[in-house]
Design a protein around this nucleic acid. Structure first.
Lengths: 242, 242
DNA sequence: AAAGGTTTAGAGTGTTTACTCTAATTATTC
DNA sequence: GAATAATTAGAGTAAACACTCTAAACCTTT
């Protein structure tokens, strides 16, 4: 470690000497608590207590609660943009669509507190709001590019107008899925959503493009979609009294 | 008014003698403030101050803040269910779809604070959560019935499976639309969403069923949809740097 | 105009919150 | 191993919150 110190004598931020820096631990614990209880219900004191550190320590690493959220936001955006890329060296395949969805839904799950309190987080921080709008526009154009790729690959038969509409519908369904689940389907006890209900989101997004599937790929894509049909579990609920 | 008093001597709740009861004024002011600033940012003291009444007075009429929200929730549900009805004496027409959407979007706008903090409101009040789940199931079945009606009227060509998927997608887009607008499109200054951007939601919902339109009605419905195309205003934003 | 119920004002309470300050401790460098 | 800088602890603060309590004002009926 002496070598390390020599190699990076005046580096600004890397505390490699420690296994995990306090800063990282704060981010990690914040993410966990925010996801479990909602950002609104988790105070900085809670986070500090959870980590067995003092509030002062927390505020040494982050100038305020907002800064923690900001950092987590950055992680989330980086991760999503990493996923939404069209390969340049080959055509898109049916499984690609699935991989996109699984990756994005996983990301949404890991940072689910964000979309739970999104409006409050953005409206109380104009700078963050600006970043997010730019992030959305980037995602929107990436998703359109994916749909164009699926068109080029002969999987979808879509006009440019269809693509624009599909992309926006997809964005809304995807980003609203967990909120939808928590509000409309989950009773309090079933805290554990992930496996099968998350899959329901993938199924639901597939329904958006089903009408546009080419004959050639209709069967294979529909079969793919059927794997994610989660209905029995929650459609079983009594379908409303009236 | 003496006559009124004689006619309804021991009625439980009507304070007809006054123009507007304090209870009504509290509900009205709460709704307004919640919508403008978010439920999270409006305290009971704020509401009382806004009305120039004392906090004690407010708590005389509502045992807690939750009770105010609960009452507003009731108004909202009643209004939506009033709209989502299939006429029994005639077939559905293209304009019906439009009327459903306009009515529902107006309701969503008037109670927009609800969907802004929905998760928190529901997760912190199990009873309300239960009611809301039932409300959702009712709405879902009503919307399906509307789609079935559009099928019977020869406007849509849909299987029962399509209907199930369409209904759910419609629900999610509709209930998420204002949140989507506030998060992704609005800068802070343009506080006033209503007219044209609300219309964008109607357009967007129409896109869901466009692929299912029968040839007979495709032109008329698409023309109807085009009226609600709001794109130029906010699609003009630079489409992301990449 | 007295009585009795309803409505209101307004001060106050206990708790929680985000955040600050100072001093102590630990690492790093010379 | 002394000096310096980076961390941490922990008490503390001012503001905001949901909500309570008591007494006064206001009706309505007799």
């Amino acid at each position: 470690m002496a070598i390390m110190a020599v190699m990076k004598p005046s580096s600004t931020k890397d505390t490699n000497s420690k296994a995990v820096s306090t800063r990282e631990r704060i981010l990690c614990a914040s993410l966990q608590l925010f996801n479990e209880q909602g950002e609104r219900n988790v105070s900085t004191n809670h986070i500090a207590a959870h980590l067995d550190i003092s509030p002062g320590n927390l505020y040494y690493h982050f100038k305020n609660k907002q800064a923690i959220i900001y950092a987590l936001f950055g992680q989330y955006q980086k991760r999503v943009l990493n996923i939404l890329q069209v390969p340049e060296d080959r055509q898109l395949q049916p499984m690609d669509k699935l991989n996109y969805l699984q990756g994005v839904f996983k990301g949404l799950w890991d940072f689910r507190f964000l979309h739970r309190d999104m409006e409050h987080l953005l409206l109380s921080d104009p700078q963050l709001h600006g970043h997010y709008r730019a992030f959305f526009r980037t995602c929107e154009s990436r998703v359109r590019e994916i749909f164009r790729g699926l068109g080029r690959a002969g999987i979808l038969d879509v006009t440019e107008e269809d693509i624009i509409d599909l992309a926006l519908n997809t964005w809304i369904i995807v980003t609203s899925w967990f909120s939808f689940l928590r509000c409309n389907l989950l009773s309090d006890e079933s805290q554990t959503i992930s496996p099968e209900l998350l899959q329901g989101g993938i199924y639901q997004v597939f329904t958006l493009e089903r009408p546009y599937l080419t004959e050639e790929y209709r069967d294979v894509m529909c079969e793919l979609q059927q794997r994610y049909m989660p209905r029995p579990s929650w459609l079983a609920n009594p379908p409303a009294a009236e």
